[in-house]
Computed example of a mutant assay.
Amino acid sequence: MRIPRIYHSEPLHVGSEIDLEEDAANHVGRVLRMSAGQQLELFDGTNLTFSAEITQADKKRVKVRVVSSNADNRESPLHLHLGQVMSRGEKMEFTIQKSIELGVNVITPLFSERCGVKLDAERLAKKIQQWQKIAVAACEQCGRNWLPEIRPAMTLQAWCAEADSGLKLNLHPRAQHSINTLPQPVERVRLLIGPEGGLTTEEIAMTADQGFTDILLGPRVLRTETTALTAITALQVRFGDLG
């Protein structure tokens, strides 16, 4: 059996004995039904992996001893900040999961004029917590040892106005530039993906005023979740560590 990878939010140290956090303990103890003596791989977001041995496992508690550590940097040289206008249902969850697998460093959920998601503060806070759990699970699955940041949701205009030294890109179906025509090298990208109905004319003009470059992915119109993953993949191929 493949050794399970588990995220632990507190710093890990070789020789220490710790209790796994509630969600991790439930997964190891109840779902995987692992027992004392079996091995786990832990990571704490510091680009280190830790070998650990289960010392106690039952339905309520899983205790492990950290045996050794190893430096394991799997991060792309390209720093990607995704600004994603929130999409309905499971589409947003899918975008977060897959973009993290593809190496995105920061994700900011956005509200725009045509955003189809309407949430009050309480429901939005629960969504953010849910998306953070998805980020953890994506890292456990894909082998990343540094945990990407899921930021609080904000308006499109506020996000575009934030200072950023990187290249700012906005996907647009009538743009004149493509990712292949962007000059090299590029180390940081702030990537804006609009809603299912697209950005308004006024919003597109605002992004241009804030220094965003319109780029085109191809001749076909893509769904918002497809657009995000296609753009991230193309950027990683040209400037990052794919291909």
Rank of each mutant, 00 (worst) to 15 (best):
82 L>T: 02
76 S>R: 07
239 F>E: 03
117 V>Y: 02
98 K>A: 12
153 A>V: 09
80 L>K: 05
1 M>Q: 05
172 H>A: 14
20 L>K: 00
9 S>F: 02
71 A>L: 08
5 R>W: 03
151 R>L: 13
61 R>L: 10
213 T>V: 14
208 A>S: 15
3 I>Q: 11
96 I>N: 00
54 I>D: 09
43 F>T: 05
124 L>V: 02
52 A>V: 08
186 V>T: 14
237 V>K: 01
218 G>L: 07
92 M>C: 07
198 G>V: 09
55 T>F: 01
158 A>Q: 08
239 F>C: 01
103 G>E: 07
160 C>Y: 05
78 L>N: 01
192 L>E: 04
233 T>C: 09
185 P>L: 06
115 C>E: 04
94 F>T: 13
128 I>W: 04
88 R>G: 13
112 S>P: 10
169 L>P: 01
203 E>P: 06
189 V>Y: 03
110 L>Y: 05
121 A>H: 12
1 M>C: 02
195 P>Y: 01
66 V>N: 04
111 F>S: 11
143 G>N: 03
191 L>S: 05
68 S>A: 15
191 L>E: 04
200 T>R: 11
202 E>H: 14
101 E>S: 07
67 V>S: 07
56 Q>F: 10
31 V>D: 11
163 A>L: 08
27 H>I: 12
30 R>K: 15
201 T>V: 14
161 A>T: 07
58 D>E: 00
201 T>A: 15
7 Y>Q: 07
205 A>M: 13
166 G>K: 00
129 Q>H: 13
194 G>R: 02
180 N>M: 11
96 I>L: 12
53 E>M: 13
115 C>H: 09
72 D>Q: 14
174 R>C: 09
141 Q>D: 09
154 M>G: 08
160 C>W: 01
142 C>H: 01
165 S>I: 00
77 P>A: 13
38 Q>N: 11
111 F>G: 03
102 L>N: 00
114 R>D: 08
84 Q>C: 08
